[in-house]
Nucleic acid binder design. Structure first.
Lengths: 164, 164
DNA sequence: AGTTTATATTCAGTGTACTGAATGTTGTAA
DNA sequence: TTACAACATTCAGTACACTGAATATAAACT
């Protein structure tokens, strides 16, 4: 009998604990391959900004799966580093339009090889078949539990709320 | 052709990003099912302490997969809450022996049903077969990448360094 | 118009999680 | 025994990630 539902002696049979460990490892490899210029979350937001020029902070946070409070501080740091600019939108002075700078785009393109190595290293313990399985299962788990966290993903391109 | 190795347009094909989201969701469900008395990491450390009475902070951090700096602050908070006690070991005044209190053991046993619901909810999007697959793959990934993070797991029972 | 409601952002506070350094203790070697 | 290395713990600093509340703006409604 596989000990999936029975005794909970070993904490490492708990999916939550394993996920925490996997994330730690992922972050660690990230810094190894991508350097110290960006944190994983900063990278994710900048990468998402690249394909959604002029988006506002709330929408960018949403597609990045990050709570808006956190998203604001992340954007502030990216602005400090000169990787994006924030400008108040005249037609809706609540929103700030975000634009990636040249330095930001340069950095992203410099980081492409690292991001590929990161992915390969993280999945290296699995065979190619297992890699596909794992990604499919993880995607399914995230997608269907999506609404659980404070920062549920707005799927795909989330109707950029007519910034213009 | 499955887009596993090709273009990296969609960030949600990146394992690291998915792992971060999965962890967010896991934490969120944790609070939902386990209440606010303990954080996930506090729970993990207390649970590990239960089966390793008298262990020192460094060893407990190691088996919990937590860096010792972080482990120290977590233990301090658990002591404040009256869930464990820390006493300097006379024979080695560097180390502090940790002991779970009655209140700590009570709390852990109260949380057992919640921890089972947590596990079920987290894995609910997957069929039973998929759940087994997923746990196996995640375990493999964590185990073989173990040394990557600052807090590599000492496997199983890590030779409690003769506390006594 | 004036009031409510919704929205975007920010702020205060707590808790991981890490790095790098400091402190104190123990054990070993010159 | 004195110097040095190893070790356990702590501390300072940075960055997520969340909650709950505050602020400012915009839209809707009476």
């Amino acid at each position: 009998m596989p000990d999936t539902e029975s005794k909970l002696i070993n904490l490492y049979e708990h999916p939550g604990h394993l996920l925490r460990r996997a994330q730690q490892i992922s972050v660690s490899i990230f810094y190894d391959e991508m350097g110290e210029e960006l944190t994983p979350v900063q990278y994710a937001m900048l990468r998402n900004l690249e394909s959604h020029a002029g988006i506002d902070q709330v929408s960018l946070s949403a597609i990045s799966g990050i709570d808006t409070s956190t998203g604001a501080t992340v954007c502030a740091r990216l602005e400090e580093k000169g990787l994006l600019t924030r400008t108040v939108i005249p037609t809706n002075r609540r929103q700030r339009s975000l634009t990636i700078t040249g330095a930001g785009e340069q950095l992203l393109s410099d980081l492409i090889p690292g991001s590929q190595r990161l992915r390969r290293r993280l999945l290296a313990p699995l065979s190619s078949t297992e890699q596909l399985q794992f990604m499919a299962l993880l995607t399914k788990l995230v997608r269907e539990n999506n609404e659980q966290s404070r920062a549920p993903l707005t799927d795909g391109v989330p109707a950029p709320r007519e910034v213009s």
